[in-house]
Design a protein around this nucleic acid. Structure first.
Lengths: 158, 158
DNA sequence: GTGCTTGCAAACAGTTTGCAGATAG
DNA sequence: CTATCTGCAAACTGTTTGCAAGCAC
């Protein structure tokens, strides 16, 4: 689905759910639909602020919460860092996170439905969601590391 | 590996890494080795406090950080809630989280090594870690729901 | 003794909330 | 019109940090 179509879908669903289409919300929907890198609330806020200098992070969070509850945004939670938001593929799927530059991409793999089915059967749990992430160093960051040839930051030298 | 063996392993590694074996640390290692429910820092602290009434959360966090860096504790991050710690199987593995009582168990499944291998090949990322969680409702909480026919929250003691 | 470790308090980051004024429908 | 929404500030939670006193080695 392309950016424009996703934007219009989001806009229609917002309206259908009975929410008001404020200019700030419309702009946020456009940003979300156009995003590819799974932006944080702060990143969305900074884009939004270009058009609405008076807007605040709180409003961004409120709108994201709304979209989460509508099931149109997937929130990726990180305790040590900002949460990240995916408004294009709101259903859970594999994410690949670069531990250097924090970029998050969606690698194409066959769905892993058999895992949750098997676990449901063996444990008796009723499965309601999932989260699958791989962490790695993206090709770009690998190049940077080689160029500078600075060993990765080692936190503790026993 | 049983609790006692894991405790002794942790203790030996702590010493081998050059850290001091304070009574608080020894007690924390015992709690970690004996834990099955993936406790939070607060839960560890409350157990620890029974034997060391003057200890603080900060010390618990410091020790957990140390063990993380040694690779002997796995930290499961949750942005909206407390992080959870696994000192028995510190390598990444599938976790099954009950969304009602927050219990976390380790279901037995075949490892998914082929996924990371395939993603590494198709994306060029150098994979350094992973996280795979399933969320569901455990059999106990399903029963509670049926009885009360309302989504009651019941804390589960791990 | 030396210097790592503890315990305390205060800082910190990201997120959420309460409320008065603004505004979409 | 009026109920929802915005923007501001302050609260909140879990985690981290700085430092003086304590203790393992």
């Amino acid at each position: 689905m392309d950016t424009q179509a996703r934007f219009q879908e989001l806009q229609a669903k917002l309206k259908a759910a009975g929410y008001r289409a404020t200019p700030q919300r419309i702009a946020l929907l456009k940003i979300l639909a156009a995003s590819t890198g799974h932006p944080s609330a702060m990143q969305i806020y900074e884009q939004l602020r270009r058009h609405f200098p008076t807007t605040t992070l709180a409003t961004v969070y409120k709108t994201l919460t709304l979209l989460k509850e509508m099931g149109e945004v997937l929130e990726l939670e990180f305790s040590g860092a900002e949460n990240r938001y995916d408004g294009n593929k709101p259903h859970p799927h594999l994410h690949l996170v670069c531990v250097e530059c924090q970029r998050i991409i969606d690698p194409e793999i066959a769905p892993l439905t058999h895992v949750s089915a098997q676990v449901a059967k063996t444990t008796g749990y009723q499965i309601v969601g999932q989260r699958f992430e791989l962490y790695g160093i993206c090709p770009e960051c690998q190049t940077v590391q080689k160029k500078h040839s600075k060993g990765t930051h080692r936190k503790h030298s026993g």
